[in-house]
Design a protein around this nucleic acid. Structure first.
Length: 357
DNA sequence: AACTACACCAACCGCCCTTTA
DNA sequence: CTAAAGGGCGGTTGGTGTAGT
């Protein structure tokens, strides 16, 4: 398993590539193309497996490789794309010309390490009352993306969510305890927001969708909220755009980025989700259950688009991204994103992803 | 100067998906 | 239709360089 026939040969060399090997590979591929990778080593006179040759070429020798530090625009794009597709580095890389999935992955991972080493949040925001099991411990670092394999979502999350809600809350708090979650706003499409502080239990969200994506309104409250959210997102074909929830592939959706992006701001918690409708209004989900006790984004008011921008700016939280801002940055780097109509950038992005996913 | 810890990144591993016979 | 082969991808590891002590 995992080993290809060409890799089973005993003679294959491993480890770092020598300049001579690089030269052989480059010379061969530039003159013959690679065609079948399993044949490349033999024809190029290399004692490597085809897979290794492919990797070397794609990640290092390819002429269009762009090396050096990531620009701010690239960073923003990576963050945004990661929030949409998660750890699908190849997808992300496809939007960053000259960057490889491996490079982006490494960059992301080292970034994560930095952030994870930051001091933990105050005890009140973490699970202090429960013994922290290894699984819980892993869950508390939202970026261990789930190699989900390491966590049994059915026994851990379901148990906590459905069988012992009291016990689940700390987990929820752990899962959604970021002080500064990632938000992605779109000009006139869906907005996910998590800014309320007290009225909704974590995991409560109301989703209003309009226009392009779908026309539906869904409400999910604490019990089973994650599933409701997830199914809602699935139903509406925007699951890939979810910034949190948990996916079939793992106990949680690690497309959710918070601490990675936090900058010390204590703005907001992941407690509510609010959607912006196509009239560009923001409606707090807290109005559903506790009208009048609204905190956060809108306080029960509607925000026009520019107001939303101002509000986002006022949060001083780098986790807030307005897609058009990202796009604006990218205007200087054309061809990074597919051209989209002005109807809905997010929809177009999602459409492009869903077509390729 | 020597040692240690950390960060970075190239490369490998293992799995999944697609293609082909 | 099925199994094998190959390609692709995400996760992980280990080597190397560098900063800190």
């Amino acid at each position: 398993m995992g080993h290809h026939s060409c890799c089973n040969q005993q003679k294959v060399k491993r480890g770092l590539w020598s300049p001579e090997e690089d030269e052989k590979l480059v010379r061969y591929i530039t003159t013959h193309g690679y065609g079948c990778w399993s044949e490349v080593p033999e024809k190029a006179g290399l004692q490597r497996c085809g897979k290794s040759c492919r990797l070397r070429w794609i990640n290092y020798l390819r002429p269009d490789i762009r090396r050096g530090r990531f620009t701010q625009e690239e960073e923003k794009l990576i963050i945004s794309l990661h929030s949409i597709v998660g750890n699908r580095w190849a997808h992300i890389a496809s939007h960053l010309p000259g960057r490889t999935d491996n490079e982006i992955k490494n960059y992301w991972n080292s970034w994560i390490k930095k952030k994870i080493r930051k001091p933990p949040p105050p005890p009140s925001q973490t699970c202090s009352s429960l013994p922290v099991s290894p699984a819980m411990d892993q869950l508390s670092t939202p970026y261990n993306n789930g190699t989900a394999g390491s966590i049994d979502s059915t026994t851990t999350l379901d148990t906590l969510l459905h069988h012992d809600l009291a016990a689940a809350k700390p987990l929820h708090e752990t899962l959604f305890s970021s002080q500064c979650p990632l938000f992605m706003f779109e000009n006139n499409g869906l907005m996910l927001d998590c800014s309320n502080t007290t009225t909704c239990t974590r995991g409560d969200y109301v989703i209003h969708e309009h226009g392009g994506l779908n026309s539906s309104t869904s409400t999910a409250t604490t019990t089973g909220c994650t599933e409701a959210w997830h199914s809602t997102m699935n139903e509406n074909h925007i699951g890939q755009a979810s910034s949190f929830g948990y996916s079939d592939g793992g106990p949680m959706d690690l497309h959710y980025l918070p601490p990675l992006l936090e900058s010390g701001s204590s703005t907001g918690h992941v407690e509510n989700m609010v959607a912006i409708d196509h009239h560009r209004q923001v409606q707090s989900c807290s109005s559903i259950e506790e009208e009048g006790d609204q905190v956060g984004v809108a306080g029960g008011q509607s925000l026009e688009r520019n107001e939303l921008s101002e509000w986002v700016d006022s949060q001083r939280c780098p986790s807030f991204l307005i897609w058009e801002h990202v796009e604006g940055h990218l205007n200087n780097h054309e061809a990074v994103l597919p051209p989209v109509s002005n109807s809905s950038t997010m929809e177009a992005m999602l459409a492009s992803y869903h077509s390729s996913l």
